[in-house]
Amino acid sequence: MSRPPAGPAGARPEPFTITFDGRPVPALPGQTLAAALWAAGILAWRTTRVGGRPRGAFCGIGQCHDCLATVNGVPNRRACLVPARPGDALTTQEGHGHDRPGS
């Protein structure tokens, strides 16, 4: 979603690129993966185990585990805690995240 103006001080840093399901998403140094996704208007990056429903960040502080993401092939990373790094590849995590072939 729209990014608010930066805080009272500081120059805007240079964005870099991560990907979500192959699509490039800009991220800022120091942002978490969840923050980068929100800034791009992406609110859901996994589906639930039972109902297959979309989920993304909820509590924002690492407690609820709703933001679990598959990052560079590793499932169940908490996107609201893990900082984005250039080239990170996120893929929509399905269910428990452990049997997605190929990634």
Binding site: P4, Q31, A35, I61
Partner: peptide, 12 residues
């Protein structure tokens, strides 16, 4: 959570 994401990640 919204507060935290805004404070640390500057996003809404």
């Amino acid at each position: 959570g919204a507060q935290a994401m805004l404070s640390a990640g500057l996003v809404l």
